[in-house]
């Protein structure tokens, strides 16, 4: 009896002398001092739109090596800080968002290092001026119509319309260009060639990309966003 009590007291003393409770999860304050990792930042600030693991979200995937290799780092930081188009929010604290500016840089660098590792930059530039809309109409009919339907809405495509005016009012030209160049592989969407065994068995040229974007942009109604 006596011995058991001594043993217990010994165990209690040893346990109690430890620096922290046996269950360290109970200590929030210690954890709070460590800055969040890039993946934690992604999970809280991006996953909702760009997908839980960087793919299969409603907005274009970020886990896309070719995309990350082509778009310059500074541009990525700029988009994340200040937003883009209608539905990509400005997230930097300096722009009224919730994320400290330094965290955003760390986040982008994390994405580039983890998801952009083996990526090869595309030959076609990630951005460029609008091309010629009427030439774009032809290119659209050749390259896009089978999947996205005729731009006049008469023939339905298999993957849904991208020429719907309401759709176009919500996406920026840059987003259109990115969609054409990098597609949405996560959704089975390669909007760029080559499609083997078809007339379109080649990738789009730079001027064709700009033309299609111009064609779609021209179909966007010129009503601004309501204040």
């Amino acid at each position: 009896m006596m011995r058991a009590a001594c043993l217990l007291a010994g165990v209690a003393l040893i346990a109690a002398c430890g620096e922290v409770p046996l269950n360290k999860a109970g200590r929030d304050d210690a954890a709070a001092a460590v800055p969040p990792t890039w993946s934690a930042l992604y999970a809280t600030h991006c996953a909702g739109c760009h997908g839980a693991d960087g793919t299969l979200g409603p907005a274009r995937p970020m886990r896309d090596a070719a995309y990350l290799a082509t778009v310059p780092r500074n541009r990525l930081i700029e988009v994340v800080a200040a937003g883009q188009g209608v539905l990509m929010p400005a997230l930097a604290q300096s722009k009224g968002g919730a994320v400290p500016d330094a965290d955003l840089v760390r986040l982008v660098d994390g994405m580039l290092a983890e998801w952009g590792k083996s990526g090869k930059a595309l030959a076609v530039a990630w951005s460029g001026p609008l091309g010629d809309a009427s030439r774009g109409a032809t290119t659209y009919a050749t390259f896009c119509q089978t999947c996205h339907g005729a731009a006049d809405g008469r023939t339905p495509g298999t993957r849904g319309s991208v020429s719907d005016p309401n759709y176009l009012r919500l996406v920026s030209d840059q987003a259109l260009r990115s969609a054409i160049l990098f597609g949405r592989a996560d959704l089975g969407g390669t909007c760029n060639g080559p499609y083997p065994g078809q007339a379109t068995n080649r990738a789009l040229r730079a001027d064709e990309v700009s033309d299609v974007v111009a064609f779609l942009a021209a179909r966007r109604p010129s009503i601004g966003r309501k204040p």
Binding site: A43, T44, H45, C46, A47, G48, C49, G51, A52, L56, G57, P58, P89, L91, A98, H148, R159, G160, S161, V162, D164, Y167, L187
Partner: peptide, 15 residues
């Protein structure tokens, strides 16, 4: 910003 729509849903959406 943190909670995406279910993947099964995203897969069937039109643009």
């Amino acid at each position: 910003t943190a909670t995406p729509a279910p993947v099964s849903l995203v897969k069937r959406l039109t643009p």
